[in-house]
Design a protein around this nucleic acid. Structure first.
Lengths: 249, 249
DNA sequence: CAGTGGTCTAGACCACACA
DNA sequence: GTGTGGTCTAGACCACTGG
């Protein structure tokens, strides 16, 4: 890749470090730099793009703050793998009531109830911006801590974005890492919508609670680096033994 | 204030910009720089502390990212007032269902039900780390959008931290700004714990719902810059017309 | 040891606000 | 114009990693 092009007029240009960052994010989106890969050194990137090392550093620092990169002194800069405990729990906010205070230390395992392709309904088409008669995967599962069921959820994925998924592939614990590794979709952020709802009759047996019990409904959309919604998930969470924790800064 | 002291050994020292930041945060905590005040210029701070302007900039950038400061090109650097819409909504996560997508544009008004001093119970003493027989303020109120009640909440404040509050002072819409301006407590972050619960009988009339209806319970602790918990708030939120939104990055 | 990221400095120039 | 923050560069030195 050659040096960055100069913008026509200085006035309407983004700062140089922002354009450098854009060029680097492009390489993540395109898959040129895959999760876990080591980036060239700051000086190498600077020389390649024709800017100073300090400018490259500012771009890398921002990307690190966003969680796209991991920097290790003395070793290098790497594409984030979403592998560390911290990143694993980045999107997992439920905590057992008795674990209050510390970060969740247990990660529940999954039990699969159903996994099949369907024609997308209107809501799914709207969420994923799909044409008529497009197909989606629907995956129903429960999550447990030991013998206790903590939540039921349905994960919806557009088939076009997940070619090669089959009815027997089990999602691993860290699904977002799985999406990145196998399908090249890097999640940049997720939007969640929380409500308290009365437990539906068809879900009640799965959670071992009476129909009508208040449960926490979490409606989540995962957004990829390119802005596309790649996953829709609705979770119904027992609220008597766990809570959703959040820190606002 | 004189130049920063050199640490005994370089090895165990924090980076210079971190110590600069610490020194500046001290001035916020001590009230030397009050909300809304303009800070000296980068060069002035640098000269005073005996470091370079770039080092001061790095400290100021971090504090800006934390929301402690607001920087305006051409004007100066100011202590954040929690006055802008964005900051006003930083801690307000409830959105009317029909407003989905955009940031909340309406901020509900309040109706006060009760406001009185009490001896702290065991839970309150634990939360605020108070001695026996310490006193707390308890403020009960509802919040509305037009004729519709959206939530009931109880705010608990330790009397020692809020000297001068009376039974007739109404909290303004932006309470955290009020705390900063009148009592010098700058909120650095809040911890929230969410659950779905069945509506209690004594609260039901306030929300205009049946006893037992699922409502969203938000348990919030506000933490000041010095690490002290300064406010405990439990909100019971109608979940049929609004939701709690969250973005995880 | 060489190579990496982390910190710090000094100085230049630009864009914006306001008198 | 002057003073502010915003960007960019060049170069120095430190701390960490691994051969």
């Amino acid at each position: 890749m050659a040096a960055l092009e100069k913008p026509a007029r200085k006035l309407e240009a983004q700062p140089l470090y922002a354009r450098v960052k854009g060029a680097l994010v492009e390489r993540l989106i395109s898959g040129q730099w895959k999760p876990g890969a080591m980036l060239p050194s700051e000086f190498a990137i600077a020389a390649e793009l024709g800017v100073s090392q300090g400018t490259v550093r500012k771009s890398l620092d921002e990307m690190t703050a966003q969680g796209l990169l991991v920097r290790r002194q003395g070793k290098g800069t790497f594409v984030a793998e979403a592998a560390d405990t911290e990143i694993l729990f980045r999107f997992y906010r439920l905590t057992r009531d008795e674990d209050e205070g510390r970060t969740a230390t247990r990660f529940p395992d999954s039990r699969y109830l159903a996994q099949f392709q369907n024609t997308a309904n209107e809501e799914e088409r709207r969420i994923f911006n799909l044409p008529h008669s497009a197909k989606v995967w629907r995956i129903d599962r429960t999550r447990h801590d030991g013998a206790q069921t903590l939540l039921w959820e349905r994960i919806t994925l557009p088939c076009t974005l997940f070619e090669g998924l089959s009815e027997t592939t089990e999602l691993p614990n860290n699904v977002y890492r799985f999406y990145a590794k196998n399908f090249g979709h890097i999640v940049s952020h997720v939007n969640e919508k929380l409500k308290a709802v009365a437990l539906r009759e068809d879900i009640a047996p799965h959670l071992g609670l009476e129909k009508g019990t208040p449960v926490l409904e979490v409606d989540r959309r995962a957004i990829a680096l390119d802005g596309q919604t790649i996953e829709w998930r609705v979770s119904l969470c027992r609220s008597d033994v766990q809570h959703y924790r959040n820190v606002l800064r």
